[in-house]
């Protein structure tokens, strides 16, 4: 039981960090489909820097930096060049995938898995009941609180939500929506980069080009379901991960791997459906 809880908590971390980033972007008015890209970039940067400096913390910082830079680039394409955010996000996902493969291939001569022996693992902290978890897990849950405070209590958070919900109206009081959006992409990118670092320095312990395994997309759904609020989003992430953990354990019960892989996506759809059923109930119907 404890192993299950610990597993859930550990596996939630990258998804949680990513969806917090996504929720932050969404608050500023950007549906960020490119989260996956920045997980990947962050994971690679963390692995390489970690190995080069023999420091997991420096690796983590490098991951966050790389993610922030990448996401900022995406934000600039969207705000500066007026690109469609969804198409651009998808493009960044493919781009970072190709870029990471290319870099790994040219710099290390391997394709697929990159395991650097000199790369340290993330330091762990021992908790009562849950056992040992890595520090990024603690950071992620602390960030849930910090983000709630930030969005509700600070002027920057207020400006962010104002610009996100009604950019034209915000402009009349002197808030620049593009600027808020760019700010949010930097934060979101850094969070995705942290998620990547957590994968390559923690959970997986190596870099591979499918290391994110669609977490960016699931995160997208998670903050939709959590309506961009940090705590509900975090709980959704925890719930989705718990379901997935159950599913992997159920593989013993003869569920084929390929179907089990579809499990998070199906559960996302079911959750969204349940959510609309509740609102539908309140709204009544329409003709046509």
């Amino acid at each position: 039981m404890n192993a299950f809880l610990q597993g859930c908590l550990l596996q939630t971390t990258p998804l949680l960090l990513t969806s917090l980033g996504g929720a932050f972007c969404r608050t500023a008015g950007l549906v960020n489909v490119g989260l996956d890209a920045f997980i990947l970039v962050g994971a690679l940067a963390a692995e390489v820097t970690g190995a080069a400096t023999h420091s997991a913390l420096l690796g983590t910082a490098a991951g966050a930096l790389a993610g922030a830079l990448g996401c900022f680039l995406m934000g600039s394409v969207i705000t500066g060049l007026g690109a469609n955010p969804i198409v651009t996000g998808l493009g960044f996902n493919l781009f970072s995938h190709a870029l990471c493969r290319l870099l790994v291939k040219t710099a290390f001569g391997v394709s697929g898995l990159l395991l650097l022996a000199s790369c340290p693992k993330l330091p762990a902290v021992s908790l009562p009941v849950l056992g040992s978890v890595d520090i990024l897990t603690l950071l992620a849950w602390a960030l849930v609180l910090v983000m709630t405070w930030f969005l509700d209590r600070t002027w920057l958070g207020l400006h962010l939500s104002a610009a996100g919900s009604e950019p034209a109206m915000a402009r009349t009081v002197g808030i620049s929506a593009p600027r808020m959006l760019l700010f949010s992409t930097v934060v979101a990118g850094a969070l995705c980069g942290l998620a990547g670092a957590d994968l390559s320095l923690g959970i997986v312990g190596a870099f591979s080009d499918d290391i994110s395994s669609g977490r960016g997309y699931v995160a997208l759904a998670a903050f939709y379901i959590g309506r961009n609020r940090p705590l509900p989003t975090a709980l959704t992430c925890l719930f989705l991960t718990a379901l997935e953990e159950l599913a992997t354990r159920a593989q013993v019960l003869n569920i084929p791997v390929s179907l089990a892989q579809a499990f998070p996506y199906i559960s996302v759809l079911v959750l969204m459906l349940l959510q609309t059923l509740r609102t539908r109930h309140r709204h009544g119907g329409t003709l046509s």
Binding site: A83, L94, F95, A98, L102
Partner: peptide
């Protein structure tokens, strides 16, 4: 693949 992806990124610009 990189060039393909940049086409996607810039398609709607």
């Amino acid at each position: 693949r990189l060039i393909e992806a940049s086409f996607i990124i810039f398609a709607s610009v």
